[in-house]
Design a protein around this nucleic acid. Sequence first.
DNA 1: TCAGTTTATGAACGATGTTTAGTGAACACT
DNA 2: AGTGTTCACTAAACATCGTTCATAAACTGA
Lengths: 214, 214
Amino acid sequence: MSEVKSSPPPVGGSPRARRKEDARARILAEARRIVLDQGFEALTMRRIAEAAGYSAAALYLHFENREAIARELGEAGMRALLEALAEAGKTVDPLQRLKALALAYAAFGRAEPETYRLIFMEPGFATTALGGKDAAGAAAFALIGGVFQDLTTAGRLRDGLDLEGLALTFWIVLHGMVSLKLTCSAFLVAPEEDLLAAALDNLLHGALRPNREP
Amino acid sequence: MSEVKSSPPPVGGSPRARRKEDARARILAEARRIVLDQGFEALTMRRIAEAAGYSAAALYLHFENREAIARELGEAGMRALLEALAEAGKTVDPLQRLKALALAYAAFGRAEPETYRLIFMEPGFATTALGGKDAAGAAAFALIGGVFQDLTTAGRLRDGLDLEGLALTFWIVLHGMVSLKLTCSAFLVAPEEDLLAAALDNLLHGALRPNREP
DNA sequence: TCAGTTTATGAACGATGTTTAGTGAACACT
DNA sequence: AGTGTTCACTAAACATCGTTCATAAACTGA
């Protein structure tokens, strides 16, 4: 889908630093392929090392930990998710953009379930991926917030709505849907698009019959 | 919160079977304590064995796997969740019941995060816990579905709503909220009650301003 | 009492993440 | 060019993990 690369690739510099950067990139690429092909739990130092043509100990010259490798993969995955969302975020009409964002989010979860699990369902990862310096997560969330901002300025939202809470609710629905699909697929039998459409409809128009006396 | 016990405890029988059942229960109880105290990843066969006064190999006389122990813990957790929800499900008014169910669900996630992670966020567990014979999960979900059923018969829902989809959406919101709180607590800063209230409000009343031309 | 079953153990196997000592090769400096 | 230093790397080891196996003790039923 998208290449794994360190956030700013300082490709220049001494040939030493260049080789080092190459090694890092190769290790990360192989690690990503392992996660994609065999799942996150198959991400083993020895397996990564063999795939990259190193011994296991050599990985510790380029990364502090197994967790550091996984974290980097998660951050790259977050950037990929942001890319997918940004593509959908080009839609002009806010409501259609909202639907496009939802579909893109769900599609990402379906296309790269192990990456999604790595980003959002492993303990201690999402925090760094969301609050890191690059803050790809924050940018992705801002994309959602922008929709409701636009809906507000267009005067299409109810009065007295907490925009932050609304954007959070939207994200919560997306994440709940994707993550449940990953862990309880046997229970969530309905196709995603239908579920998403229903959830969006409920969220936008409400489930209750409009009442005269509030 | 509630004791860990096998679904039907056939406490009678030969003294042999009784001792065996005791051993099983003791092992499960210690396993549960480890998960609660030190987290799921600290659930080690040798640790469980030591806590229960056995050797590691002895555990395999009572359980097939480490996973079997974890699965049993997850099912017990699911029953505990069902209990908590059932308590909230006694509320008469459907709308208040919905809010009570949401609060109970969130409270369970907050009180036993590791149990919740075990049930819903470990790969391959939720499926069995939801579709098992006891089907505590199905009962819990039925509790939610009942609310919307009652709302329907009371004529308080919009026409043409997919009840199943609505209940699923509700559950998705609850799960998305709790699980995000577990993995992205740094990002989800707002207090749970506020978030839940906002999400419920959006779900029930809709975010869009009611429009004349549909 | 004795045969048979059940229950438990210690040692072992393969695999995991990680550390350490040692080995050349590449580099920097005179 | 020679020399000392740093760097990248490996093999071996350590502790721990889940799991298996041979073996011994304890209990059961006759």
